[in-house]
């Protein structure tokens, strides 16, 4: 595989893995919880590095999942005390965990081959130089991990499809038929944590939030159907990957950042030109309705002229 192809596949697969979860996060109004979880996995990564002294994926995924769960439970517990509101609970827990991770990296950076830059920018440009031994075959590490993340998320969404759908659209009904929306949200956020940590190497801890939220929010402006929304989200993800890659090399800037910018561009486009919920479509609809009303008013006035 050429190195460009490896980078493209890595970017696209990361975007796909995020795109499978993003629509649910947006529909369930969990977007900011996913932001919090994506930040909170950082100390998990550091702790796993420190304990196992390895960059092997499994311990790191486990460490990240643990801290993702700590983050979600911590926020829930803080809210449960009734002493702070939900937004303050989020804003208290995730910065603390992220700060822990940053301090861990700054203190032990040399020991774990990890630095703050890769936390922020990701290391997608180095993707072609990393390989993973899979059943004797040397395959590009990030692509393998990307495929694994996509497969895992696909399985997650497919297995829990009905439950996820019900709890996303009608949580009260779901509760009534004994599907707990809160438990579904937690499961979803654990999936987010795992996705975030796999994406961490390629796009960094923070830009993964962009890929989780922005394409899904754009798709939300374009369609009312869940399957279509997921398909559009994944498509926007790939568009961001391709666009991000080409613009980044043109401007000599971060690939991950450029992916985020392209995704944001897609969102703006959807916001302006979306067929039904776009601002332009709304303005046209409003003007047409106004014209119709004026015409009807004029007709009524003519018909009722005698008075």
């Amino acid at each position: 595989m050429s190195s460009d192809l490896i980078i493209l596949l890595t970017a696209g697969l990361t975007a796909t893995a995020c795109g499978l979860l993003g629509p649910f996060l947006v529909l369930r109004r969990n977007a900011l919880m996913s932001d919090a979880v994506a930040h909170a996995v950082l100390p998990g990564i550091v702790v796993a590095y420190l304990i196992f002294q390895t960059r092997a994926p499994l311990p790191i995924v486990a460490g990240a999942a643990v801290f993702g769960i700590i983050c979600v439970l911590g926020i829930d517990a803080l809210r449960g005390t009734g002493l702070v509101k939900w937004d303050a609970a989020i804003a208290l827990v995730f910065p603390a965990l992220f700060a822990l991770g940053v301090i861990g990296i700054s203190t032990y950076a040399s020991g774990v081959h990890l630095d703050l830059d890769s936390t922020i920018y990701g290391e997608i440009a180095f993707a072609p130089f990393l390989s993973l031994d899979v059943l004797g075959a040397e395959l590009p590490r990030t692509v393998v991990l990307g495929f694994a993340a996509v497969a895992a998320n696909l399985a997650f969404v497919a297995l829990l499809w009905r439950k996820l759908k019900t709890t996303s659209f009608d949580p009260q009904y779901a509760q009534a038929v004994d599907v707990s929306p809160a438990r579904m949200s937690r499961l979803l956020l654990v999936a987010v944590a795992i996705t975030a940590v796999i994406s961490f190497e390629s796009v960094g801890a923070i830009l993964v939030v962009t890929l989780l939220i922005v394409p899904a929010a754009a798709a939300h402006l374009l369609t009312d159907r869940l399957t279509a929304m997921i398909a559009i989200t994944v498509a926007i993800g790939w568009a961001s990957a391709i666009g991000g890659l080409s613009f980044a090399s043109a401007a000599d800037a971060s690939i991950a950042g450029m992916m985020g910018v392209v995704a944001a561009g897609c969102f703006v486009l959807a916001l302006l030109a979306g067929p039904r919920y776009g601002l332009a479509a709304r303005a046209i609809r409003r003007r047409r309705a106004g014209r119709r009303a004026r015409v009807a008013l004029g007709a009524a006035r003519e018909a009722g002229a005698p008075s």
Binding site: A31, L32, S34, D35, I120, Y121, I206, L207, V209, T210, I213, V214, A217, A248, A251, A253, S254, A256, G257, M258, M259, G260, V261, A263, A264, F267
Partner: peptide
């Protein structure tokens, strides 16, 4: 909030 936060941040990184 999420869209604004992450879009601006991505722009900042670029």
């Amino acid at each position: 909030i999420g869209v604004m936060l992450s879009s601006f941040f991505a722009l900042g990184i670029v």
